[in-house]
Structure formats: C-alpha cells, structure tokens
C-alpha cells in the first residue's frame, strides 16, 4: 500500500515537472515571438521582378534576423502606401516621387528614407524602323502615348517644354495597360516600365523580327525620381531603431537580389510569387532592374539623389501639379545602415 502511494507521489512529481517544463517552454517561445515587432510594408506594384529586393529580404529571413516580423504586401494602382501609412495600416511603403510630393503638398507627415530606383523605369518604347530619337525635336510629328493623369504625362510635358514642342507638333493618344494600339502601330511611342513591360514588349516584337529603341527622358537631362521607401515622420522620430533595422534588412535584401552571383536564387524567389511571366522574361527583367537600381558599382542601393528630387519638385510645380514648393530636401532622410 505504502509502496503504491510512494510510486504515485513520484509519478505526480514527474507529471508536475513535465508540465512545468512545458509551461516554461511555451512562455519562453511566446516571449521570443512577442519580442518580434509586427510591421506592414506596402509595395507600389504587384509581386514581380521590379520588387525583387523586397521579396528577397522577406524570403531569406533578413527581417526575421533583425527581430522584425514584416508583412510584405503587394501593391496595385488602387493601393496607396501613403494612405495606408497615415491610416496606420502600414508602417513602411513604396511610393513614387510624384505621389510623395503631392502628399507633402497636402500636409502629409511622411518622409523618404531610401530611393530604390536610381533611374526612372518610366520610358517610351518605339520601333527601330522609325528614326532614332537623338534630340528632343525628333519627337515632332510622332504619335505619342501618354497615360493622362499618370506621371508619364508630367514627364512628357516637361520634355515638350524643354524642347519647345507644342501639342500641335505631335499627336497625343491616351493609353492604358493594353498594348494593342502600339502593337497595331496606331501609336508610335508607347510608355512602359522599362524593366517589366519594356522587356515583355521587346520580346514580343523580336519574335516578329521587329526591333525597338527606348526613349529615356533622363538621357536628355530630365530626372524625375521614381520609387522610394517611405515611412511616417512619427516613426522616424519615435522609433528610429526600428526604421534603421527595417531599412538595413531591406537594403541588404536589395543588395543580395541585385548581385549577379545570386541571380538563380533571386529568380527562384520571384518565380514563387510571379506567375504571370516566364523564366526567360523574368531573367531579362532582372537584368533590366539591376541597371535601374544599381546603375554603377559605386552606387550604394538606397542612395537618395537630392538634386533629382529637387528637379522632380520643380517639374511638378511648373506643371501645376502642386501649389507651392514643399521643400522636399527637408523630407529626405538618408538613413545610414
């Protein structure tokens, strides 16, 4: 009887110790999990090669390593990172320079912490059987596609102003995502994102033995900044350590994704999320993206080109897209990482 009782006590002690250990393990894990900081990062566009670095950082656990639990959300024309940051649904996001400047003009409290694209991917594609555009006046007499209300309209208007081209000298056609008017040769010069749509169209036309050129306004001194990483002023002021951790992880992802040595890994990561394009296209898109993100080996990814931002602001002011100067330089914070 006594022996049985003693056995029961030992068993109870063992169960108690087991439960205690389990409890400690669970609470320990919960503590580790709780230490991770939850963040939402809203991209500007869908998951494809143009956001290679963002998804690379996520897939390779760079955010996790920094103690961050980042939810990388794909964007679309209807999803606006600035709105989401103001509404508290995202802490970081990607926005184009015109969005940022327009928002600052309306007193949004946001700051730019890194400039992802050093060269604007917004360029115009045209067939090589047409004369090459060597000077801006070569645009005269052509049928040019423009997305009314889009930043390509602002850029092209600046091109016209710089060249002294009036709207009567060219034919303007409003464009959408559908390339048919360009493919059917109804429009000569078509706006594309050089690293995504540009690659697809070039490939498509190459199959029909047609070759293309790209018209890049930056080659003619018109620098209009594209995508940058933004956050709220409050975040920079109150949680600078999180901003630094996030940006360091993100740019580490971009550096790795743009490194030709990691090309296969990067393409595999993109492939998991981008089902729209094929392997060949994605590879070419990655090469094109590399040139826009890191045009020279000496360029550090994320570098904010203040002069280009100022020029963008001036263009928008001239085009009456904003009422007053927003002193953009005060909203550009180059975080050292």
């Amino acid at each position: 009887m006594n022996k049985n009782k003693s056995n029961n006590n030992v068993l109870n002690i063992r169960i108690f110790l087991f439960l205690l250990t389990l409890l400690l393990l669970i609470s320990g894990a919960a503590t580790v999990y709780a230490e991770k900081i939850e963040l939402n990062y809203r991209l500007k566009w869908l998951f494809n090669t143009s956001v290679a670095g963002d998804i690379y950082a996520d897939a390779k656990g760079f955010f996790d390593d920094a103690g961050l639990n980042v939810n990388v959300k794909q964007g679309s024309p209807e999803k606006n990172a600035i709105n989401e940051i103001e509404l508290g649904r995202a802490q970081f996001g990607v926005a184009s320079a015109d969005q940022v400047i327009r928002a600052l003009d309306k007193k949004a409290k946001i700051v730019v912490i890194a400039q992802l694209l050093q060269i604007n991917p917004m360029q115009w594609i045209y067939r090589a059987d047409k004369p090459k555009i060597k000077v801006l006046n070569d645009l005269k007499g052509r049928n040019i596609g423009i997305t009314f209300g889009g930043n390509d309209e602002t850029i092209m208007n600046t091109v016209f102003a710089k060249a002294g081209i009036s709207k009567n000298d060219v034919n303007i056609t409003g464009v959408r995502f559908d390339f048919t008017p360009f493919l059917m040769k109804k429009v000569d010069i078509w706006p594309v994102y050089r690293n995504t749509q540009g690659v697809i169209l070039k490939e498509k036309l190459a199959k029909q033995n047609e070759h293309v050129f790209f018209f890049n306004p930056a080659d003619f001194g018109i620098n209009f900044v594209a995508n940058s990483v933004i956050t709220s002023m409050e975040m920079v002021k109150n949680k600078p350590d999180i901003v630094k951790k996030f940006l360091t992880s993100l740019l580490k992802g971009w550096e790795a994704a743009m490194d030709p040595a990691n090309e296969k890994v990067t393409l595999d990561i993109i492939k998991k999320l981008d089902k729209a394009d094929n392997d060949k296209i994605r590879k070419k898109q990655l090469t094109a993206t590399r040139k826009l993100i890191k045009p020279f080996a000496s360029v550090k990814i994320g570098t904010i080109n203040i002069n280009a931002w100022k020029q963008t602001q001036n263009i928008m002011l001239k085009e009456k897209q904003i009422k007053n100067k927003v002193n953009i330089e005060n909203h550009l914070i180059q975080v050292n990482y």
């Binding site: 600035i82 103001e86 327009r102």
Partner: peptide, 14 residues
C-alpha cells in the same frame, strides 16, 4: 479622429 492629412481626406475648403 485619425488626424489625417488633406492627401487622404481633403478638408472642406480644399
């Protein structure tokens, strides 16, 4: 309530 800028929701004057 959320102290949003005029970019998100414009004020009446705008």
């Amino acid at each position: 309530i959320f102290s949003l800028s005029d970019y998100v929701i414009p004020n009446i004057l705008l």
